[in-house]
Design a protein around this nucleic acid. Structure first.
Lengths: 217, 217
DNA sequence: CGCTCTATTGAACCGCATCAACGAACGTGG
DNA sequence: CCACGTTCGTTGATGCGGTTCAATAGAGCG
């Protein structure tokens, strides 16, 4: 999930009596460099895809939400680490379905479509990383979480943040301090309200959207 | 071409008596929002993929070099603009070959592979945009151009830069001034030498690689 | 030769990082 | 159940890297 554009919630690819993989919070699904045996569609929970440099600098590549497909190989290998932010249920998809369209043409086509969507979403994220201010990044992040997974049934709509501030920072190319300050600024502007540390009420979605695109301060 | 990792030069996908598309310098191949009718493999020349925000901020998504495949659709549409930096020859690939594996299974598989490679390369680029300093970005950029398209036959190896400083800046999330200053710093350190404005001799590839990864200053 | 556009260099400013302190939440053991 | 320690989040003070603004130099072209 690249926090820049709204993805339609994806339907499960496989009607499954198939087994789920279950992943406890904080446990790893795979590491960078691992051979890719399966891709996974997330059924429930939230996972985190990360890369690190030798000197410890970290980039969160994406957060995986229900419906997302993760684990696309390059040269047969995983190129991120993946671990769970919350207990998650995953639907394994044999890599063969990606490589060989004859195994399951429909599934193969769906995987291709997901890969193409991912490319598009990543391009949006480039704009965010390269060209947006800290305040715009944080507003964009909340905005897309709201559109993608926010509970709009509630008034005001609510967004849960299963990831830490430092995860958000490493996703947006900021520091935890800067993320905090931007969140505080949105709160003081009356645009959001914090309910505990990991839950945000969006009081003014319109104002949030404007800040995400750099209108107003 | 995402300037972060070395791609093996790709072989042409189609042995063609097929027609080339020819694209003059500065002319556009497609725009964001256009329906995707064809993908293209670059046969010669260099193209530029860009996105812009309403307020004019621009992000260069990638530079397309010979062997690269460009124009992957999402929801059937292009999601970047594409124009040529130099006169280019392109091999059109019917979109059908991407959507339907039965048309040309081998080509379809090659396109899938290219899309997966692209995802991986973009993830590397995230690290660059989000976590590297200006000096590291510029060094990384030159390093990858050297590996990918540099003429190592010459001593010292030479890299051509068909794009402007501002293209480089918009690719790396910097300003043209900062790009200039970083290039100058590399020059004064004796790592590179400028031959005109659009050609660089890499005098010390090892030192360049170290700067790209943040070792030394 | 002069015009225009790009690249370079310099100076000042500012946004974000860094460093530091404090507070809140949570788990553990007494 | 409370005391304590540990981790995470927040806020403040300061510094710096990169932007911004401005001026100059150079390259391409009619």
């Amino acid at each position: 999930m690249y926090v820049t554009i709204q993805n339609e919630a994806r339907q499960p690819l496989t009607r499954s009596h198939k087994p789920f993989a279950k992943l406890k919070a904080d446990s790893y699904l795979y590491f960078e460099g691992d051979e890719v045996s399966h891709l996974y569609q997330i059924e429930s929970g939230v996972v985190r895809l990360t890369r690190v440099l030798e000197d410890g600098r970290r980039q969160v590549i994406a957060f995986g939400y229900p419906g997302d497909i993760i684990g696309f190989p390059a040269n047969g290998l995983h190129h991120t680490d993946c671990d769970a932010l919350t207990e998650s249920r995953l639907i394994p998809i044999a890599r063969r379905a990606l490589d060989d369209s004859r195994v399951d043409p429909e599934l193969h086509a769906a995987l291709m479509e997901a890969a193409l969507q991912e490319i598009s979403a990543m391009q949006d994220h480039f704009m965010m990383l390269g060209r947006k201010s800290a305040a715009e990044k944080v507003a964009s992040f909340l905005k897309v979480l709201l559109e993608r997974i926010g509970d709009a049934g509630k008034t005001p709509p609510v967004v849960d943040l299963p990831m830490s501030r430092s995860d958000i920072a490493d996703f947006l190319g900021l520091t935890t301090e800067t993320v905090c300050r931007c969140v505080t600024a949105l709160r003081k502007a009356g645009i959001i309200r914090l309910v505990g540390v990991n839950r945000v009420e969006i009081l003014d979605p319109t104002a949030l959207a404007q800040r995400a695109d750099g209108q107003l301060n």
